[in-house]
Simulated assay, not measured.
Amino acid sequence: MKDAEINMHEEMRRAFALLSGKWKLEIMWLLNQRVYRFGELRKAIPGITQHMLTAQLRELEADGLISRTVFAEVPLRVEYAITKKARGLGPTMEALTAWWNEYGRSVPARSGGRGRKAKA
């Protein structure tokens, strides 16, 4: 049996899968700034539904990229934070910011935005 070779294409597909999903990068961007409560995240991301936000948060938590802290208070308080593992993506976020600052104005704006309209 040959030594196991690392297939970087497959490894990168696994990495991309961690952040794939319509809203995951936006959620990670926000949590990289500070800790958020569920309602704050929902208000900060126009067009996301409660169901979709819940699903995306659960996936990010299962992958170890965010942490969920429940406070035994009435009413119940839940906070989401980025993990140390996800902070390792900091250079990637910085590179994306630098790229956008240089080329973002050349990207055509999309009309209508994404997802459903947020309820007022």
Results as ranks from 00 to 15, higher is better:
Lys2Ala: 09
Lys2Thr: 10
Ile6Met: 06
Asn7Gly: 05
Met8Ala: 07
His9Asp: 03
His9Gln: 09
His9Phe: 07
Glu11Asn: 13
Met12Phe: 12
Arg14Cys: 10
Phe16Met: 09
Ala17Arg: 09
Ala17Phe: 11
Leu19Val: 14
Ser20Asn: 13
Gly21Thr: 02
Gly21Arg: 00
Gly21Glu: 04
Lys22Met: 14
Lys22Pro: 08
Trp23Met: 00
Trp23Phe: 06
Met28Thr: 02
Trp29Asp: 05
Leu30Pro: 05
Leu31His: 02
Gln33Cys: 05
Arg34Gln: 14
Phe38Gln: 00
Glu40Leu: 09
Ile45Lys: 05
Pro46Ser: 05
Gly47Arg: 07
Ile48Ser: 00
Met52Trp: 04
Leu53Asp: 02
Gln56Glu: 15
Glu59His: 11
Glu61Val: 01
Ala62Asn: 12
Leu65Asp: 03
Arg68Gly: 03
Phe71Cys: 03
Val74Trp: 09
Arg77Gly: 01
Glu79Phe: 11
Ala86Leu: 06
Arg87Gln: 14
Gly88Val: 05
Gly90Ala: 12
Thr92Met: 11
Met93Tyr: 14
Glu94His: 08
Ala95Gln: 07
Ala98Ile: 05
Trp99Thr: 14
Asn101Lys: 15
Asn101Leu: 15
Gly104Pro: 03
Arg105Ile: 03
Ser106Glu: 04
Pro108Thr: 04
Arg110Cys: 08
Arg110Ser: 12
Arg110His: 07
Ser111Arg: 14
Lys117Phe: 07
Lys117Ala: 13
Ala118Lys: 11
Ala120Glu: 10
